[in-house]
Structures are given as structure tokens and as C-alpha cells.
Write a protein that binds this DNA or RNA. Structure first.
Length: 423
RNA sequence: GUGACCGUAGCUCAAUUGGUUAGAGCACUGGACUGUGGCUCCAGGGGUUGAGGGUUCAAUUCCCUUCGGUCACCCCA
């Protein structure tokens, strides 16, 4: 039996790759316009980094990590997200001496051992952005603005919803959690079975329940926004004022509770209704204190991750596959050896050229050019060679004219600006 | 980790209550058509029916196990 791809991983085939290129290019363009610099990080780290950086109580660390021992017996883990690695690099290379905020972005595959599902894979891809060393609320707003600009650049903005929330300072969440328990416990009879389970494991999750029966109870639950310290509340107010100043449309969602332990104050998510159960396309928040927790300087930070698979899914099928604009068809070896050089010349100058090898009959070669989606074919046989000419055929119309072999490379380069027809 | 549905050619799908050599379209290769594609026609290559086991005279079909896919839960990007 031939070997197949491992469960939960997949190939991004040529038909899909142009969409990925488009998404990645948009991310780079937008991020760099905001002054972010790319950093490229290793795909695996010491296991301890993630245990400390993500939180040992999180699902990610408890059951989703690809962890193994290398040959020296060291426990290493394929990164389940990028923030921990990026902060490790920030600390390791002394980025704290640079002008604040230090703006960094990275992109690439992440790994989580989960059951595959629509929009969810074991190897998936994120674009990750972090602004380090600055607590000003304008940074929060600017980061969010940049995220929305990314979606805008792809024409997806109106199909997405931005939710923002504040979950307060480090002490707020445990206190709020207790408050929620006090509220829900006496009312557990009114909740669905799942929510009763959630109440044990993670009371904040009850707020996310979509079961209609639970809604009345949930709606009257205490809001985390009422549990904020005055500092946190003021920070949130100012973030909102900055967002408003930029005209960014958002919803305040007090039930937005993100899964990672390290978030404080501002959190946000970009949601879609088009992807089934996987409704989060991007998410992020502020994580003041995390860098210190990783034995780094006491620098605050805020960032987000975009799920690239989900963005590509939203983009749908595009037709923009790279196709050769011109297919060269030599008939026989003499013509082939002449076209070999001409093709190389034109390609070095950027023309998209495909060269047949003269092994098929002309009808087959033309058929091949047609299927490749070429805009033009160039036919050179003994007759043309004798005259020092080539036949340049426009595939769509079937019109053709003779061009001198001498100037053929120039001609091909000139054609390069025109598009081939889609197959 | 839990549950439901589904695995037949590269792709999309057939195959009677279990019945002989598992078919078709598309794609691929060649030909009809000495050097002019998209249309048509003909021929050819290509399958351990996901894998393993069981029931049966006989399994693509029924049962079990396993792997994979899809969707949902959980959780998240």
C-alpha cells in the first residue's frame, strides 16, 4: 500500500496555492505598513516553554501537544501556537533594548493533536503578530485596526464580526469565576447537561453555550465588565475610544472569554458564521506579565493570531492559477535545440514560457498548449527553420503570423504582460 | 477523548433480495486526421472494492476489528 499523509494533515495543492500566496502577501503588506518586522521561529521548542507560556491548565497543554523526546532525551514539542516561541526569542535576543513597542510578526505551521474537523487540522497555519513593551490603549486599538485592515485587504471585512472584551487584570478572572459559580450553582437545574459539566470544568464556558434553553439564565449572569478594576475599566474605555476614532465597527461581547491562561485586559476575536462550528478566524489579546513569567523583562504585550486555513476557506475558489503564457512547440530536434536557447533567454527576462520537446505530433502539442491554458503557441519546424522564422499562434482566435527567430525572445517577453486564457 | 455518517479506477459515481470476468463518464496514451488545438468516433492502459479477520457454496454487498474521510461535541485559529 502506498503511504498516505498522516491523519489531520493535508497537502495544499497547486489549485489552492495561489489563494495562500494572496493571503500571505496581504498579511505581509498590511503588517509591514504598520511597522511590523518579520521574525522566523523554529517549529519546535523545549516542552517547558509551552507549559509555562500557555498555561499548564489549558486544553492545549493538557491534551493537544505533539510532544516527544529527541535523541538526547530532551522533551521537545511541536509549537501549538507562536506567541510563546516569539516571546522566547524576544527575551533570548534582548529585544527589550529596542524602541517600544517592538513590533514583530511571523507566519507558519502550528501543531495540535485534535480530531480533524471542518477548518481544523493537526497541522494548521497562523499569521501571528505581537506588539511588545507598551501598555498604551492606543496600541491595543492599533493592533485591532491592523487586523481588520488585513481582512479588508482581502475583501472579507463585511463577512466578519469583530468582538472585543476586557477580562480585567490578573486577579479579575479568578474573582469573576467565583462570582459566576455563585450565580450558576443554584440555577444549575435550568441549564443543559453540557453546561452543568462546564460549570465544573470551566464556568466561563457556560457563557458561550448556544442552547436556547440556557439563554435566559446566561443573559442575567453577572458581566465580567462589572468586575473590572478601575484601571482595567479605564483602559478598556480608552481602547474603545481609539477604535471609535478610527471608525472601526465592533461589538462589545462580555462573554468573550479566550482559552489561553495568559490573557488580561483587552481580548478580541474575529468571527464568521460561514465555517460551521469553527467560527473564530482570528483571536488575540493583551498578556501583560507573561514575558516576566518566562524569566524575561517586565514588558507587557498584546498580539493576535489569524487562522490561515479559515481565511483561505472564506476566500472560496479563485481562478487565478499560474499558467504559462506561451507554449513553444518544436517539431524535431533541430528546432528543439534552437528553441532551448530562446526559451531560456525569454524566461530569464521574466516571460512565462513552456517548452515542448518535439516528441509528439503537432495536433497533440497544440492540444497540450490548450489544456495548459496558454495564450499563445509558437511552432517551429524544418520549414520555419529554413526561413529563419517561427509561427506565433494566438490560441483563442487561431490566428497566426510569422515572426523572425532572431527577435522571438523579445516577442515572448512582450507577450508576458498578457494573460493566458484559463483552461 | 466521545458520537454519527461514509470509504469501489487519478476524479465523480454505478453494480438487482449476497451470484459468474466489478462497469460508466471525465482524465491519460495512441489512432481515424504526413505540420495546426478546442468537436466527434475507435482502441488501449489503469482496481488487492481502504486494510485485516469472520459468516457463506459464493461478499463491493452481511458481521467484527482497524485505518482514513466528513460532520458535531470538547476546544480553538
Amino acid at each position: 500500500m502506498p503511504i498516505k499523509a498522516v491523519r489531520g494533515v493535508r497537502d495544499i495543492l497547486p489549485a489552492e496555492a495561489p489563494r495562500w500566496q494572496r493571503v500571505e502577501a496581504a498579511a505581509r503588506r498590511v503588517f509591514e505598513a504598520y511597522g511590523y518586522r518579520e521574525i522566523r521561529l523554529p517549529l519546535f521548542e523545549r516542552t517547558e516553554l509551552f507549559a509555562r507560556g500557555i498555561g499548564s491548565a489549558t486544553d492545549i497543554v493538557q491534551k493537544e501537544m505533539y510532544t516527544f523526546e529527541d535523541r538526547s532525551g530532551e522533551s521537545v514539542t511541536l509549537r501549538p501556537e507562536a506567541t510563546a516561541s516569539l516571546l522566547r526569542a524576544y527575551i533570548e535576543h534582548g529585544f527589550q533594548v529596542e524602541p517600544k513597542p517592538v513590533r514583530l510578526y511571523t507566519m507558519g505551521p502550528m501543531f495540535r493533536y485534535e480530531r480533524p474537523q471542518a477548518g481544523r487540522y493537526r497541522q494548521f497555519h497562523q499569521a501571528d503578530v505581537e506588539a511588545l513593551g507598551e501598555t498604551h490603549p492606543a496600541v491595543d486599538a492599533e493592533v485591532i485596526a491592523m487586523l481588520m485592515d488585513f481582512f479588508g485587504a482581502l475583501g472579507l471585512a463585511e463577512r466578519l464580526e469583530l468582538h472585543v472584551n476586557s477580562i480585567g487584570d490578573a486577579a479579575t478572572r479568578p474573582a469573576y469565576r467565583a462570582k459566576l459559580l455563585d450565580y450558576f450553582s443554584p440555577r444549575s437545574g435550568e441549564l443543559c447537561a453540557e453546561c452543568r459539566g462546564r460549570l465544573e470544568r470551566n464556568p466561563l464556558r457556560v457563557l458561550d453555550c448556544k442552547t436556547p434553553g440556557c439563554q435566559p439564565v446566561i443573559e442575567k449572569a453577572p458581566s465580567i465588565l462589572d468586575s473590572l478594576t478601575t484601571e482595567a475599566a479605564e483602559h478598556f474605555e480608552r481602547v474603545r475610544a481609539c477604535l471609535d476614532a478610527m471608525g472601526i465597527v465592533y461589538a462589545v461581547n462580555p462573554r468573550l472569554v479566550r482559552g489561553l491562561d495568559y490573557y488580561v485586559r483587552t481580548t478580541f476575536e474575529v468571527l464568521t458564521t460561514e465555517l460551521g462550528a469553527q467560527n473564530a478566524v482570528a483571536g488575540g489579546g493583551r498578556y501583560d506579565g507573561l514575558i516576566e513569567q518566562l524569566d524575561g523583562p517586565p514588558d507587557p504585550g498584546i498580539g493576535f493570531a489569524i487562522g490561515l486555513e479559515r481565511v483561505v476557506l472564506l476566500l472560496g475558489d479563485g481562478e487565478s492559477t499560474a499558467v504559462p503564457v506561451v507554449v513553444l512547440i518544436p517539431l524535431g530536434n533541430a528546432a528543439l535545440s534552437r528553441l532551448l536557447g530562446i526559451a531560456r533567454d525569454a524566461r530569464r527576462r521574466g516571460a512565462r514560457v513552456d517548452l515542448g520537446y518535439g516528441t509528439r505530433k503537432l495536433p497533440r502539442e497544440l492540444e497540450r498548449a490548450n489544456r495548459l491554458g496558454a495564450g499563445f503557441a509558437v511552432i517551429v519546424g524544418d520549414n520555419e527553420l529554413a526561413r529563419g522564422q517561427a509561427l506565433l499562434r494566438e490560441m483563442k482566435s487561431g490566428e497566426q503570423r510569422a515572426v523572425p527567430l532572431e527577435g522571438l525572445a523579445d516577442e515572448l517577453v512582450g507577450l508576458a504582460g498578457r494573460r493566458g486564457t484559463a483552461p
